[in-house]
Simulated assay, not measured.
Amino acid sequence: MRVFRLKRWVMQNVGFATALLLLFVLLITYNMMHPRGFSSAVAIQNSNEAVAIIFVAMAQTLPVLLGGLDLSVGAIMTLTNCIASEVVNGSPAQMLFGAVLTLLSGSAFGLLNGCIVVYGRIQPIIATLATGAVAIGLALAVRPKPGGNVDDDLSWALTNSVYDLADTYGFADGGDAWWIRPFADIPVPILIVAIVALVVWLPFKRSVTGRTVYAIGSAEGAAYMSGLPINRAKITAFTLGGFLAACGGLYLAIQTSSGNADIQQAGAYTLNSIAAVVLGGTSLLGGSGGAIGSLVGAMILRVISFFFRILDIDPLLQPLIEGFVLLTAVSVGAFRTLRVKNKLDLFR
């Protein structure tokens, strides 16, 4: 019975299952090739490099499920990165206020995107192309030059292991308590991503609004005729996307202790987020997939980049290889259209 259930799940989630298998193979191969593979230090370093793209990919998932694309997620991440570099410092209360302000800023920008798409009746790809430019302009106003001042203890605690977090803030006997020892070597970045996925994404997916997002991507006309809250779902999806992109910007500021209004960085994160979404099994046609799959897709992209260091690939060739990977990933999303015999199936 269990084998039958597993087989049925795999058949229903071929894209996600394939992504999981590919990630497993890549991670095992990478750690076997790394001189210090399968160590906590390597896991911490790699997870730190993956967090920002994971959050941006999760943010991109929401508009893709609706059947569109959000070209502003990288810009929102960059804007919130610059904001966080200004406000996440001082006393614990001030740092908490700064983090909340950063996340609210990203959510507000996502809300703006949703309102423009819904009430302005503009295609998401066009609307977010414009708002992304606005976000970059605001980022340059906040941080004309790279820099910032993020609390050093916070930066250290959230970019290392659970033991370092406990030791920095003096709880659980400084990390020596018996109940924390089994988790002491787990990278804090992994815990942060897991908490956001469990607390934010899963409840949203199971809510009426979340199910409406999937229904819109599958057949918006049918969703409307069913009486589902179409406008509310679209606005909520873009708002949540802004929040998740802000999570990436906030963590990037904590990781680097600085902010940088880098236009190229924003564009690169946006393109990589689309590739990660497709690699994770979410259809560009909308209606199927999820943020967990995008998380896996983002990790696949990062592990591929880790191989560049191990194999000592010429830096001049790395963009070429990354370009082929991105092209292949995005092309996967078009395979369904090549197999469809009746064009009406594309709108179901």
Rank of each mutant, 00 (worst) to 15 (best):
C82F: 12
L71Q: 03
T256I: 02
V162Y: 10
M95R: 06
Y224A: 02
A52E: 13
L112H: 00
L202H: 11
L252M: 14
Q265P: 00
P319W: 04
A43D: 12
L285Q: 13
Q264C: 00
C82V: 10
F307Y: 12
Y251W: 15
I263W: 10
K145V: 12
S39K: 03
N342I: 04
V277L: 00
I76H: 12
T328Q: 00
F308R: 09
N272D: 09
S331A: 15
G98E: 05
I125H: 07
P182A: 03
P203A: 09
I254V: 12
V88Q: 04
A108R: 12
D185V: 07
L129D: 05
I126A: 09
L240E: 05
G290S: 08
A50G: 04
N31S: 11
G147A: 03
D345H: 12
K343Y: 10
A59Y: 00
P315H: 13
V100P: 00
L65H: 06
S257Y: 05
A172I: 07
S288N: 10
T131R: 03
T78Q: 01
T78R: 00
T131A: 07
A197N: 09
K145P: 06
L202D: 03
T61C: 11
N48G: 10
W156P: 00
P144I: 04
P182Y: 02
Q45M: 14
I313Y: 13
R5N: 15
S331N: 10
V332N: 06
F38N: 08
P144Y: 08
Y119M: 04
R143W: 06
R336N: 06
G210S: 13
V10C: 04
L317Y: 13
L71M: 15
W178R: 11
L69Y: 12
A184C: 15
L326W: 02
G110Y: 13
A261N: 09
A93L: 15
T18A: 13
S207I: 06
R36C: 05
A133S: 13
N89A: 15
L317C: 06
A194M: 14
Y169K: 11
V296T: 15
F4V: 14
L103F: 13
I304C: 01
G227R: 07
A215G: 15
V142M: 05
V200L: 15
G68P: 02
E322V: 08
S257L: 09
K234F: 02
Q264A: 14
I136T: 08
K343E: 13
N260Y: 12
Y119E: 05
A57K: 06
I274W: 01
P63T: 10
A276S: 04
L65K: 08
I254L: 13
V278Q: 01
G174E: 04
V278C: 04
A99M: 15
A233R: 04
I310H: 00
W156T: 04
F109R: 08
T168D: 04
Y163Q: 07
A222C: 10
C82S: 11
K7R: 14
G293T: 05
A268I: 13
G170F: 09
V208P: 05
G217F: 03
A172N: 05
F306E: 08
A59V: 00
G217W: 02
G287T: 10
T102F: 06
T209C: 09
R309W: 08
V134M: 08
N13G: 03
I122K: 05
G174T: 08
F306K: 01
V100G: 01
I136V: 11
G259R: 08
I122E: 06
Q94N: 03
